[in-house]
């Protein structure tokens, strides 16, 4: 492992990150000195039982929450050193987000939601970006739905719009927290295939929090958290094996 703060192959890096909530005897240690490198161009799943610290890990990696101790990088940028305005720009220009629900602004149409990050950055959408977004929309069967508002779309369609928005700016990393948590298994599979495809075809880096073994089986790498520590770090694994691993963790607990 390198000790340099910058590495061309790392999209994100957590170094000895500890996070505790509360103080004194009521304090909860959500993350206990976690060190994790997320490589560029890979689809990494973060797994673990409920309460193991998955969401906390993602929030800290994305600069949404600050660690109690330890350091966090996005590419070459140390996130902990940034002020709110700089963090806002980093989120807008270099990260994408997809989460379980309420991904879309209810008052904007699907298309307006997708181009929102561009608008916020005051960037024009050039022709190649427009072609890329339109292509994504059509290949996902949303072509005729772009003028609809979120409440007129099914949960799966909403989730696809959110993923297109996350992919549209080609961010350095997409963070996804239980992106299939609110979907039925078929729609969930579609969404996961979409994420895996983006990774395979365009080299999109993705970090996805999930507790669903099937979802994790789409990733190239699975890291497993338990009680705020990293327990396993494995390559692509079938859903059955992941299930067995999770069961063994739960029994040990």
């Amino acid at each position: 492992m390198t000790t340099s703060s910058s590495s061309p192959v790392l999209a994100a890096r957590l170094d000895a990150v500890t996070k505790s909530f509360g103080v004194g005897s009521g304090a909860v240690v959500a993350l206990d000195s976690v060190t994790l490198n997320i490589e560029r161009g890979r689809f990494t799943a973060i797994m673990g039982p409920s309460g193991s610290g998955k969401s906390t890990l993602m929030h800290i990696a994305a600069g949404l929450d600050s660690p109690t101790s330890g350091r966090v990088w996005l590419g070459d940028t140390e996130i902990g050193a940034l002020d709110d305005a700089a963090l806002t720009r980093v989120r807008r220009d270099r990260m994408g987000f997809v989460f379980q629900s309420f991904n879309l602004v209810p008052t904007l149409t699907a298309w307006e939601n997708i181009v929102l990050p561009f608008e916020l950055g005051g960037r024009r959408i050039d022709d190649s970006q427009r072609a890329w977004i339109t292509d994504l929309c059509h290949s996902l069967g949303l072509g005729d739905r772009l003028n609809h508002r979120p409440h007129q779309l099914s949960g799966g369609q909403q989730q696809r719009v959110a993923i297109i928005r996350a992919l549209a700016t080609r961010p350095e990393i997409i963070f996804a927290d239980e992106p299939t948590g609110a979907l039925d298994s078929r729609t969930g599979r579609e969404v996961l295939t979409l994420l895996a495809d983006a990774c395979a075809r365009f080299g999109q880096t993705i970090a996805m929090v999930t507790h669903d073994p099937i979802a994790a089986s789409y990733a190239n790498r699975i890291v497993v958290l338990a009680d705020g520590s990293l327990r396993h770090d494995i390559g692509q694994t079938s859903a059955a094996e992941v299930s067995a691993l999770m069961l063994s963790l739960e029994e040990a607990a």
């Binding site: 008052t107 307006e112 005051g122 339109t134």
Partner: peptide, 25 residues
């Protein structure tokens, strides 16, 4: 007049990526 706006992404070309930037409607 958002409801009257163009209905396909191609037609948004003219308005470009501006308009309601950052405001919740």
């Amino acid at each position: 007049t958002a409801d009257n706006r163009a209905s396909s992404p191609a037609e948004y070309r003219s308005t470009g990526a501006r308009g309601g930037a950052g405001k919740s409607r």
